[in-house]
Simulated assay, not measured.
Amino acid sequence: MKPFGLTVLGATGSIGENTLDVVARHPERYRVVALAAHRQFDKLLEQCRRFRPSYAVLADAADAERLEKTLRAEDIATTVLSGPDALVEVATLAEVDGVVAAIVGAAGLPSAIAAARAGKRVMLANKEALVVAGRLFMQAVRDGGATLLPIDSEHSAIFQSLPAGFSGDLESAGVDKLVLTASGGPFRTWPAESLAEATPDDACRHPNWVMGRKISVDSASLMNKGLEVIEAHWLFNAPPSRIEVLVHPQSVIHSMVQYRDGSIVAQLGSPDMRTPIAYALSWPERIAAGVAPLDFAKLSSLTFEAPDLARFPCLGLAFSALEAGGDAPAVLNAANEVAVAAFLAGRARFADIPRLVDGALSALDLAASPDLDSLLHKDAATRRWVEQQLPS
């Protein structure tokens, strides 16, 4: 069997590293064609040494030149490229069968859309592709005949819990609603008055998952779950009224599908991203991911509660943005990214995140942009607006 040619965009992040861990367990099945990173030179160098990709990409041209010289000195024949155009190039190479799209933020949009237009298997971990550009991205998937598979544990769980060959019609599949589970994050039991004093370290102390700082803050504010609601809308053609969020602190049930006859189908597993990554890589088959199975005898309990929208208003803002349509989800996302960065830098309080996002949704034009360039201009305008609200 010819090895599956793989490009990993965001190779040095947690999704990229977990992807390469799974790939390394099946060297006969996968060939790493390209690895792309932002600035983590040393990590990317080690990955190139191990996987010998045909191409590597770094954001900075000087870093790329240094990497190529280092690899050449070690007799590793990897072509090193730089810049955003290079991301599109390695996402659309003829020898690439699938692309793991795991670049955080709007920077990952053009390459993810290009991979879809090129008809690749797009294994999506970049939320912005759907949150910011859902309509444009899904059109690119249709136009290119691409296969779109989610890597988020929640969306992978829903995908696995829907009928085989699901066509995007919840009615004909007998589905009443999709239930996204949320851990509740590190602030689940904090009183509202304490949240105002929360520090970045507090927010990044996730009880179940090891993640980057930005996504950890999003989990703490429940914005991450709000973004996943928007993703679920596009992935499964689900109106907001058919998407529910349920807090499940143990993170054992990753999400559920409730059917018309009263049945609920759930996907369970240890909280390890290698499971949804392995499923996306091998679909419709299943391969070993290095994840220990659940030991039900050792599970103490599974508990559930409704999310508290008063303490965590970001989730409600995401539902409102989805209902508003147009560019509202893009404005929500851009405002949140700037607000979270300000919080992590000590320029804003945790409570400022929903305040700034709500302000952007009220102040800015939410009409749908006709193309990606216009959408990216809206994204940039939103970021400027939020920056202007922050103390200098």
Rank of each mutant, 00 (worst) to 15 (best):
A125D: 11
N126D: 07
N126I: 01
E128H: 03
A129E: 06
L130I: 11
L130Y: 02
V131E: 02
G134K: 09
G134L: 03
R135P: 01
R135K: 15
R135W: 10
L136F: 06
M138G: 12
M138H: 09
M138Q: 13
Q139I: 07
Q139F: 10
R142P: 06
D143M: 09
D143A: 13
D143N: 13
G145S: 14
G145I: 11
G145Q: 14
G145A: 12
T147I: 15
T147S: 14
T147R: 14
L148Y: 10
L148C: 12
L148R: 02
L149W: 04
D152W: 06
E154Y: 01
E154W: 00
E154N: 07
H155Q: 14
H155K: 11
S156H: 10
A157G: 00
A157V: 08
I158D: 01
I158R: 01
I158Q: 07
F159E: 04
F159Q: 13
S161D: 03
S161R: 08
S161F: 02
L162K: 06
F166Y: 15
S167Y: 05
G168S: 14
G168M: 08
A173E: 05
A173F: 05
A173I: 00
G174D: 04
G174R: 03
K177M: 08
L178S: 09
L178K: 10
L178N: 09
L178R: 11
S183E: 02
F187D: 07
F187P: 05
F187C: 11
F187M: 15
R188I: 01
R188T: 06
P191S: 10
P191K: 09
E193P: 04
E193S: 15
S194T: 12
L195W: 02
A196Q: 11
A198G: 08
P200S: 06
D202S: 10
D202T: 08
D202P: 03
R205Q: 15
R205P: 05
P207Y: 04
P207L: 06
P207N: 06
P207S: 00
N208Q: 14
W209V: 04
G212Q: 14
G212C: 14
R213T: 14
R213C: 11
R213N: 12
S216R: 08
D218P: 01
S219D: 06
S219I: 11
S221K: 10
L222H: 04
L222V: 08
L222I: 01
M223I: 07
N224D: 08
K225N: 05
G226N: 15
L227G: 05
L227W: 13
E228S: 07
I230A: 12
I230M: 14
I230H: 13
E231D: 09
A232F: 14
A232V: 13
H233Q: 10
L235E: 11
L235K: 07
A238C: 15
S241L: 12
S241T: 12
R242W: 13
I243A: 00
V245R: 05
L246K: 02
L246H: 09
L246V: 15
V247Q: 04
P249H: 02
P249S: 02
P249I: 08
S251G: 01
S251E: 04
V252R: 00
H254E: 08
S255F: 07
V257C: 02
Q258V: 10
